[in-house]
């Protein structure tokens, strides 16, 4: 947060048409908006919501994979997984920092997450019962996330774009380690291959849901596109993901759990693309609204870390205050 000692962030400009037009002209000229620039309240709120959700997703996302750190089957896999889950924490941290430039504190955002007021990516409300899930998450979930995140590096809000550049740079190993892991299962015993297929069956549809509701139902898309916070629609990104992922599955001998999946020459303006089956949006909304298998466990785990950590944070603050007094007295 840069707002201390700065003037712009705490006062809200009058949002007359001239102001909104001038703001839109900056956006259209691909100028970056920086923390203390005047901005419409709705732009600020959209960013706080989006960056907050994104940060929460990274933090909650540590849990399903973290579940396997102590059980990773080889030391090589263990260090890769540990480094990856640690990265997710780092990404959450960069993103909270970006949101803090808009005048909302990390504590406030954390409390919104714990109270259920703030959302995070629903994908993390699915369980990771097998080791193969660690590979599948890296391959599909990180793969889908990258599709979403690469365009965000060009987001009109400077701190978000900068955080995303760092995130994307670090993410690049995540999808590769996931795919490599799944590939090694496919090259292993029949049990291992079955484990990989079972995992793909469970994660394929939820990862398609990660791109959000279809464009026809998406409540935030239009304005976000206009403000260049988002650069592609949910359906565009989803299609890109399907087209990229299906051949990757074929290459390692796995099949997608979708009988309606087939190549369509006409798609993507004649370049071809995959048609795929109907997504179960009822399931999507059920999980978004808190009724997935792991929703309650995820929040409970975050709550536990936050509450049980309070005495540690309090101690550090108390020590800092004492040190300040001691220095002043000396």
């Amino acid at each position: 947060m840069y707002s201390q000692g700065l003037i712009g962030a705490d006062s809200q400009p009058v949002e007359d048409q001239a102001f909104l037009d001038a703001f839109q002209r900056r956006i259209d000229a691909e100028e970056k908006i920086e923390p203390n620039d005047p901005m419409p309240m709705a732009y600020r709120n959209t960013l706080v919501r989006m960056i907050g959700q994104h940060a929460h997703s990274e933090i909650v996302g540590m849990l399903p994979e973290g579940n396997w750190i102590t059980r990773a089957p080889s030391l090589r896999r263990k260090v890769a997984l540990l480094a990856k889950v640690q990265d997710e924490g780092g990404h959450g941290l960069y993103l909270y920092s970006a949101a803090e430039t808009l005048g909302v504190s990390r504590e406030q955002m954390t409390e919104e997450l714990l109270s259920g007021e703030a959302k995070y990516s629903s994908i993390f409300n699915y369980p990771t019962p097998t080791w193969a899930d660690i590979g599948t998450i890296g391959w599909l979930v990180d793969g889908a996330a990258i599709m979403n995140q690469v365009p965000l590096c060009r987001c009109s809000y400077g701190p978000y774009a900068r955080a995303m550049i760092r995130v994307c740079k670090e993410e690049s190993f995540h999808q590769r380690q996931g795919y490599e892991l799944v590939k090694s299962l496919c090259e292993g015993s029949a049990d291992q291959k079955a484990m990989a297929q079972d995992s793909l069956n469970r994660w394929w549809w939820p990862s398609l849901m990660m791109f959000g509701p279809p464009d026809t139902d998406s409540q935030h898309s239009d304005q976000s596109m206009k403000w260049k916070i988002k650069r592609f629609t949910n359906d565009e990104l989803r299609q890109k993901f399907v087209d990229a992922t299906v051949p990757q599955a074929e290459l390692i001998g796995l099949s997608m759990p979708d009988p309606d999946l087939k190549w369509n020459e006409e798609k993507n303006n004649g370049q071809g693309g995959y048609d795929f089956g109907e997504i179960d949006w009822d399931e999507f909304w059920r999980v978004v609204n808190g009724h997935g298998m792991m929703n309650k466990d995820r929040i409970a785990a975050r709550k536990k870390a936050w509450e049980e950590g309070a005495w540690v944070r309090d101690a550090a603050k108390a020590y800092a205050a004492k040190q300040k007094q001691r220095t002043a007295a000396a």
Binding site: I59, M62, L63, G66, I69, T70, L82, V85, Q86, G89, G92, L93, Y96, R106, A301, K304, A305, E308, G309, A310, V312, R313
Partner: peptide, 9 residues
């Protein structure tokens, strides 16, 4: 074992 459960990020 602390990864994801520490007192602060």
């Amino acid at each position: 074992e602390w990864c994801g459960h520490a007192p602060m990020l």
